[in-house]
Nucleic acid binder design. Structure first.
Lengths: 212, 212
DNA sequence: GAAAAACTGTGACTTGAGTCATTTTCGTAA
DNA sequence: TTACGAAAATGACTCAAGTCACAGTTTTTC
C-alpha cells in the first residue's frame, strides 16, 4: 500500500486526482493540503511515501515545499503537477529533488504509471515536458563548443592547471618546467585570449570546460 | 515532401526503417549511408531535410557525423537512433545539435510522429530516454545547492565580482569601498572557504554559480 | 632543407594581491 | 545593557604574478 499526500490549492482538481488515484487499490490518499506550509504539517503527522505537488500555490509554493520536504525526508518521492507553461519552474524543481512530472492534462492511466515508476526509483517525465526542459538544460552545459581555442598543446595544459587554481610554481613542478617559462606561456595565453590575468584565465578555463 | 537520409550500418534495420517511413506519403528516403563518412558524401549530393542517424557505426560514428553535418548544414534536422544503453552518448549528441531521439524499438506511429515534430522545430525525445538523460544533465548543473555557503551578503557580493574577473580596484569602485577594505574582505572569504587566492575563489564562484 | 612555429630558459623590473594589527561604527541577539 | 559579528578603513610589509627583451632548442610545415 502506497501512502500519498496530495498538495493542490484547487479543491476540485484535488478531488478529481484523489478519485483517479484511488481507482488503483494499492494507492491511498491519506492526507491533503492546500499549500506548501500545510503540506509540511501533514508530513509530520502521517507516514507518507509519495507527494503529489502543485507548483503554483498561495502561502508556500511547490518549489519551496519540495526543497524542505526533501531536506527532512529524503526518501519521500515527489511528483510535480505541472502545466505546459511551467517549464522554467520545472528545471528548478528537478534540482530541488523532484522525482518526476505529471501534466495536469494526463489521463488516469498515465498518472498511475507515473506513480509506480517513480516509486520504483525511476524518473517519470512526460514526453512533452522533457522536450521543453532539455534545451534549457543544455544551454548551460553547452556554450563550450571547444572550437577555435587558438592555443598550443602546452598552452592548453597550462590553462588547464590555472583552471585548477594552481600557482606558477606548482604548474612548473607538474610540467617539469622553470617558473619563468610558465610565466612566459601565460603571458602568451593571456594575449591570445585577450584576458588580463590568471584569474580571468581560470574563469575562462572553467566556463569552457578545459579539464581534460 | 520531406527528404530523408538514412544512416545505419545494418542493412536489415535500414530496410525496415525505410519501409516504415515511406508508409507516410509525405516522407521519402532519397539516400542511405552505412556510416558517417558516407553520410557526409550523400549530404553533398542531395538536398536533405532530415537525417536519421545511428550512433554505433564503423568508420565514423554518429556523434562525429552529427557534429560535422550540423556545422555545414545547420538547418538540417537530425534524429538519433538509439537503444536503452546509449544514454551517455545521447547527452553528447544533444550538445552536438541533434534534434531528437528515436528508440530502435519504437513502433512506426511514434517514428512518423517524431519526424514531424522535429521538422516543426520541436524536440522529439522518447519518454524513457529523457528519464535517463535528465538526471545526468542535472548532476552537472546541480552541484551548487546554494546551501551552507557561510558568507555574509557583502562577502557574497565581492565573491561574485571576483568570479567575473574584476580587480580589487574595480570591485572597490563598484561597491564604493576602499581597496584596502576589499582586500580585507577577500582575506576573510579565503579563510572561510579554505582557499588560497582570488583565482581559486573565482573558480569556486563559477562552479557554484554565484552570479546572481 | 629552409622557414615558421612551438617550447624552453634567464634576469630585471613593476605592480597587484594578500596578510596583519588595529580602529571605528552599527545593528541585533542574549 | 552588554556583547558580538559584520562592515569599513588605514598603513606597512611580503611576494607571487605578469611584462619585456633576448636567446637557444626542437618540431612542424611547406
Amino acid at each position: 500500500m502506497i501512502h500519498i499526500l496530495l498538495v493542490e490549492d484547487q479543491a476540485l482538481v484535488r478531488q478529481g486526482l484523489k478519485m483517479m488515484i484511488e481507482q488503483d487499490e494499492q494507492l491511498q490518499v491519506i492526507a491533503e493540503a492546500e499549500h506548501g506550509l500545510e503540506a509540511l504539517q501533514k508530513m509530520e503527522k502521517h507516514m507518507i511515501d509519495l507527494v503529489i505537488m502543485d507548483i503554483r500555490m498561495p502561502v508556500m509554493n511547490g518549489l519551496e515545499a519540495t526543497r524542505k520536504i526533501k531536506e527532512q525526508w529524503p526518501n519521500v518521492k515527489i511528483l510535480i503537477l505541472t502545466t505546459f507553461n511551467d517549464d522554467e519552474y520545472a528545471v528548478q524543481a528537478l534540482k530541488d529533488g523532484a522525482n518526476g512530472f505529471l501534466l495536469k492534462t494526463a489521463e488516469q492511466q498515465k498518472l498511475i504509471q507515473a506513480i509506480y515508476s517513480c516509486m520504483r526509483g525511476g524518473m517519470a517525465i512526460h514526453e512533452d515536458v522533457a522536450a521543453k526542459m532539455l534545451p534549457r538544460l543544455l544551454e548551460k552545459s553547452k556554450q563550450a563548443p571547444t572550437t577555435n581555442i587558438p592555443l598550443t598543446p602546452r598552452e592548453l595544459a597550462i590553462t588547464k592547471l590555472v583552471g585548477e587554481g594552481k600557482t606558477n610554481k606548482e604548474i612548473a613542478a607538474v610540467l617539469h618546467l622553470s617558473v619563468g617559462t610558465v610565466k612566459n606561456h601565460i603571458t602568451q595565453i593571456l594575449q591570445k585570449l585577450d584576458l588580463r590575468d590568471r584569474t580571468q584565465l581560470a574563469i575562462y578555463a572553467v566556463k569552457h570546460d578545459i579539464t581534460s
